[in-house]
Structure formats: C-alpha cells, structure tokens
Nucleic acid binder design. Structure first.
Lengths: 242, 242
DNA sequence: CGGACTATTGATTTGCGTCAAAGATTGTGG
DNA sequence: CCACAATCTTTGACGCAAATCAATAGTCCG
C-alpha cells in the first residue's frame, strides 16, 4: 500500500489522516507469472488490483486473436481504478514480469474516497493522468511510423521509470519485442528491425532487460516526444485541507 | 447548460439541489466556424469549453503537420473536463460542424464539485467514460484494418447519436472523409475506397451528411464492435444523497 | 539437457500512402 | 440567383512501409 500512497502523493497533497486511510486499505495478495493474464473482468469480481511489484499491461484481444496493449502499469498503479466509478468496465491485464497484485474491493476504495475528499481528488486526478497517456498513444499509433512509434514509447518508459536525466542513462526494461509489437500495433518482425535501426543510430538499445539511452535529446526528437502529457508537476490540491 | 446537465444525469443521479448548482454555472458563449480550431490551450486560459451545439473533435498535430483526432464530442460534453483536475493539460479542438461553445472557468466547476460530492462523482465518472473510449480507439487503430476500423467508428457514432435500434436506421453524420482519415489514422484516399467497399456490401452509406445503416448486426460484426465499452447503463450514485 | 519462449534474418506479398487530376458539393458575395 | 472559390469526393497509377511466412539462432528456466 506504501507504493500506492506515494504514487498518489506524487500528484496530490494529502493530510496525515488521509494518508493513514490509504494505508489502512486491505486486500488479498496474489502472484502472477510472467506473460500471464490475471483479470478477465468477470461479472462477479468486485475487486480492483493494485500492482505491488512487477510490470503489467492492459490488454485487449481482437477477433483474430491479436493482442493490443493499451497501457503499461507500474508498482503503485491501480490499472482498473476506473471500476471504482464504472464497475462494469472490466478489462484484462497481463504481467510482463512476474508480479504481485493486491486485490482490493472497489467498494472499500469508494467508501474511503467518499469519506476523504482529498483521496477522491487524488484518485480522480490519477484517472485523468491515465487518460492523457491514452490520448497520446492514439496519436502515436495513428500518425507515426514504426521507428518514431517505438522511440516515443521508449521515451515514455524512460520518464516513467524515473531515471531520465542527462544525455545518456539506463533503466530496467523487461518488455519483450512481442510486448512492444502488441503495444505499438506493429508485428514482432518489424519491431525487431526498427529497434536495430535505433541501435545503429546510437539512440536506444536493450541489453539483457536493461535499456540504454545514448542520446536522450536525439531519441526524444526521433519520437516527437513532448514530456508535457505525462504531467510531471509538483503535487497540488484543490479541496480544502481541513 | 441544460444539455450538460442531462449528459451528467444519463450516468449519475443528482439531487435537485445539485442539478440547480449545475444549471447555475455561467460562461461566455462563442461561435466556431466549421472545420476551425478553437482552443489552442495557451497557458493563461483558465476556462473549459462546454459544447452547446455542433460536433467537435479533439485534435493533435504530429510534427509533419498531420492531424490526429483522438475523440469526438457532442453537445453537452466538456472536452477538456480533465483540466478541472489537471489544468496544464491543454489540447486543441476543432469544430466539425459550426458549433457554439460556452467557456466556463474551470475554477467554477471545481468549486461546485467540491461543494457537491454528487457533482464530483458525476464529473469523475464522465472522465472515466471518456477514457474507456480512448482505450477502445487504441485497439481500433492498432489492430484493425481500414474497413473494420471505419466500421467500428461508425458503430460508435451510431450508438452515441442515440439512434441505434432495429436492423436499419439513419442518423446525422456531418463528419467528412478527411475527418475520418484524421480519426482513424488512414489517408483520405483510403478512407474513400474503404467506404465504397462498405457501401457495396450494403453495410454503411453516407448521403448528404446523413448516415444510413442497412444491416446493424453486419456492421457491428465488420467492426468487431462490442457496445459494452460505451457504458450505456442506467445512472448510478455511490455518494450519499443527503 | 531439453523444452519453451525470444530474437534475428531473408524472401515475398500486400495494404495503404502518395501524387495528381478531375468531378461534385457547398458556400459566399456581387 | 448566378458565378466562382473553396472544400470535399472520386479515380487511376505507382511506390513503399510494414505484414506474413518460414526457418535459424539465442536464451532462460526447471
């Protein structure tokens, strides 16, 4: 629950009492194997899943059995937070790495949000930030070629990993080429070739589950990446802090 | 403000007092010409725009000057509602038809939401429903071919127009082929050819700004359209109605 | 050490983009 | 009410980015 709280605090100011209320949330822990799905959004399920560790993705299947990843989620995220407001919006998720998820009843989250307006604000802001990323993905998939599409995704990953600084740096990158293909709407073969091109140009490289960025500015340019949409602003609060 | 209220009421139950508070919101009215942009999201702007009439779209420009539409908005929608929570998330919108927008200070909306938890809930739910559509668009653009992509968009439009019922029906459709190309990530030429294919198969046709659907089930199948994500559920409320 | 993913490579095909130009609509002002 | 401009739609020819198919290497893990 600690990671969840710090994720909320990164965007919204919370009182000590509210912070305690977040930490008081309880759920049941669950292990998920790498590359396995873990929520099929059945009707009876009344829980939300907090990612405690590992990297996960929201996935949708097209009729031909092709997968599309619509978002990545990191520890502290609740990928189906939207169910607090729209319970019938079920989705499927997959663990990229091995992961631990904590299933929290969404009615518990809802009650906490009703009791503490600051928490409601934090959660609402969280869902908004999520949707800003979704809109950017539509632009990415709809209008950029393979190279730029991948570069953009790598930039986003770099910033969200929290390691983006300086001209060159590295960060954990457990995402397989198949996952990248699912996220960008490309084929695995073409992802492979495009990544080789990025490597050749000394922009981006993956060696053993670690990503290496040589020239951050050049990679951002290649992906037409504008960091704004990730909203890395200091935390705010509009509700009164009584 | 009436259309806005009824849009909120379609998903969330509000008390009479809350309804009055929504109707009490004030803004300045503005006309927008067809196919013209109308919010460039400059720093100083502190307003949100409610669509009073007309059809609008959220647009993003790629570096090559190509446009991507990430969402369509109808009367009663507030396309940049997210700014209530994340004010720096500015975007550009374009009127598809001639439109009237009402600029409301987002601080006004925020204060109303703080005062009336039911309104906060309604707005939060509204942003969630928006983002469900965004996720579906990612799947559409990422994994479906031109024909299915267009069919899916037509299905969504049909449902959101409120006219979808029976085997065949029609509804207003002022969206040009260029707009469709911008929304689906295709070229106008290919949109044209794909629409001719849909017409040949008696699935979908546009005649003079009116869409005609001959075989609703077949069109849904062609677009792999599952109405669930549009969340056409009766209104709910989780906050207490004191 | 063997089985199952994951990555890489080459050959071939195709859906879709681009370019270009001709009609069809629509809207505007004289 | 017509003329003319602007936008939208349609068509054809051509090229290319990316998909598909298929097979070979790595790599990880029990």
């Amino acid at each position: 629950m600690k990671t969840f709280l710090s994720r909320l605090l990164s965007r919204t100011l919370l009182t000590d009492e509210e912070q305690a209320a977040v930490l008081a949330l309880r759920g049941t822990r669950e292990e998920v194997l790498p590359q396995h799905a873990f929520v099929c959004g059945d009707e009876e399920d009344t829980t939300t899943c907090l990612i405690a560790s590992g990297l996960c993705a929201r996935t949708s299947l097209s009729s031909l059995g092709e997968q599309q990843i619509t978002a990545f989620y990191m520890p502290g995220d609740i990928p189906d937070l939207q169910r607090v407001m729209v319970p019938e919006s079920a989705s499927t998720f997959a663990a990229i790495t091995s992961a631990e998820v904590v299933r929290i009843r969404y009615s518990d989250i809802r009650e906490t949000a009703i009791k503490y307006p600051g928490i409601a604000e934090a959660l609402w802001r969280h869902t908004v930030c999520d949707s800003l990323i979704l809109a950017e993905w539509i632009v990415n998939i709809g209008r950029r070629d393979a190279r730029a599409r991948l570069a953009h995704l790598f930039c986003e990953s770099a910033v969200r990993s929290g390691n983006a600084s300086g001209k060159s740096f590295s960060f954990d990158f457990p995402i397989t080429q198949r996952n990248l293909a699912d996220a960008t709407g490309l084929s695995t073969v073409h992802v492979n070739r495009s990544m080789q091109a990025l490597k050749r140009d000394h922009l981006f490289e993956v060696r053993g589950k670690v990503a290496w960025i040589d020239d951050w500015d050049a990679l951002k340019a290649a992906g037409e990446f504008d960091i704004e949409y990730l909203n890395c602003k200091p935390p705010v609060r509009f509700n009164a802090m009584n």
